[in-house]
Nucleic acid binder design. Sequence first.
RNA 1: UGCCCGAUGGUGUAACGGUAGCACAACAGACUCUGAAUCUGUUUGUCAUGGUUCAAAUCCAUGUCGGGCAACCA
Length: 592
Amino acid sequence: MSLENQENAAPAAPSDFIRDIVAGHIAAQKYPRIHTRFPPEPNGYLHIGHAKSICLNFGIAREFGGVCNLRMDDTNPTKEDIEYVESIQADVNWLINGWADDKLGLKGKGQTPVAQTIDGKTDFFLAPTAGQDGQPFYASDYFDQIYEFAVELIKKGKAFVCDLTPDHTDEYRRLGKASPFRDRSVAENLDLFTRMKNGEFPDGVRVLRAKIIVDAPNIWLRDPLIYRIKHADHHQTGKKWCVYPMYDFAHCLSDYIEGITHSICTLEFEVHRPLYDWILESLDLPRPLPHQYEFARLALGYTVMSKRKLMQLVDEKLVTGWDDPRMPTISGIRRRGVTPEALRNFAYNIGITKYNGITDVSVLEFAIREDLNKRSLRRLAVLRPIKVVITNFPEGKIEELDATNNPEDENAGKRKVPFSRELYIERDDFAEVPPPKYFRLKPDGEVRLKYAYIIKCDEVVKDASGNITELRCTADLESKTGGTTSARKVKGTIHWVSAAHALDAEVRLYDRLFTVAEPDADGDFKQHLNPHSLEVITAKVEPSLKDATPAARYQFERLAYFALDYDSKPNQLVFNRTITLKDAWAKEARKS
RNA sequence: UGCCCGAUGGUGUAACGGUAGCACAACAGACUCUGAAUCUGUUUGUCAUGGUUCAAAUCCAUGUCGGGCAACCA
């Protein structure tokens, strides 16, 4: 490959408004190191929208010589679970492996923030360590420090314990009225907050609130809640706490503790940014403060993205689980057979903006096909078989024909495919009454059997009810690759398998989960579920597929891309259809 | 309703006061032992109205439309 070609082949470095900001900070040497983070709440499985965020945060770390921490944002024990923690780790690792895994910031086993004094101020810091036993960061690792920061805020007269009921709190905030408890003394606040921590009060009777501006135009500045009482076991900290910090309080401080420079989140947090800044600024912290930047979350056509809705699909058994190949979850997409490279290319292609649009699924599908076309091993498989007998081919004779594994990759080599007198071809590849421009097999018509002979259909055999049971054909025995008539032009080439040699395989044909582009546009997304989103069939596949591996990707020629499912067993193959090949004929056929 | 944010072909994005470009999709054709891939070509766009300027997608004003927030969720 020439140098010029290499340059052309190298994908342009992504550019967007956030990377522009980071690049500006690099140029100005604002930070010694760029540090981002990916902070999911472990209350569900990661989906393709998270993939966009992962690619952004790790991509920035990658492009600017930084680090990206994986952090569980686990401040609400009643909604979170260890199952989600584990799936999140697996999904992130899968997506960044070989690409940005060396940028993944983890913490050493059992590590907690280090208390230090800088300029006479107490400070907490936890640096990432790239170690073998590295594990994710957890906001819950900082509960002690976050509690200390809350006490500090009280001492500064910037937070107070409020006894208003939830309803009254809402009402006062809506009206911009000060809580009657707003002017409690520091001593009383300290005492009450300590007793909250000690579990002296039941859930909901008191909260800690930041004292900011009771009638600020931005609701999030109207003395927002920063701590609530929850007598709940936490998946990481167990029974240690009965007060938990709210997102706004925990998040900015977690960012600070980890030395995050760029805290990137989605648009709905834009109005929280003044609070993010207020908390950090109010604490008089000695190190540089992180800053929050927001971008538009991903919306994709023909699917739903909210964790609530995805959980509904799982809970109501509308899909088989979080990793059902029809789900837009990372685990579902992975199980379907999509590679991390394809997902990353997709994320790159859609860009980063503040505009809330709906990305067409065709953009995802293109990324998947582009990737699979380059890497997949070609195989012959017949999904809906119809028997073909080559009447001039000797009974019992078996020929081993050469077949190309991947025309896009010479190194993939060749394999042998057995050919014999009785074959299966695709039912769709024969038409007794062919539509216009049909150039597959038809009565008295010729077609090329891929890698084998040109055959002609002489006779259509039917059963009593008129169903076609068999096609009797003759082959041009000189037309095989290398043969004297091999160069003969026949318009159609079709795939086939030898009946005696073919293996049965379960094939799961997946289609989009919803029938409309915007399933949740009218409120009831479930009424738009696609009843044909999964069809399970038994296909006839070429014998070499008995050695199929989960890591490989296959293209069943002229049909679609497939990947081995984890339900597959040595003598019981199960393939998932990742995505069909583009089908220009389907379009043509629709016209007439 | 209040506050915040946004608006460029069908869709997603670029252009950072100076030729509106890219990708997907669509359409037409070439090639083809995959109706795939590849290649060639085509169609379609700056929300509106004013203003600033030699020059506006870009700056300003107003309006319109869309999204978000107003949880003891994140």
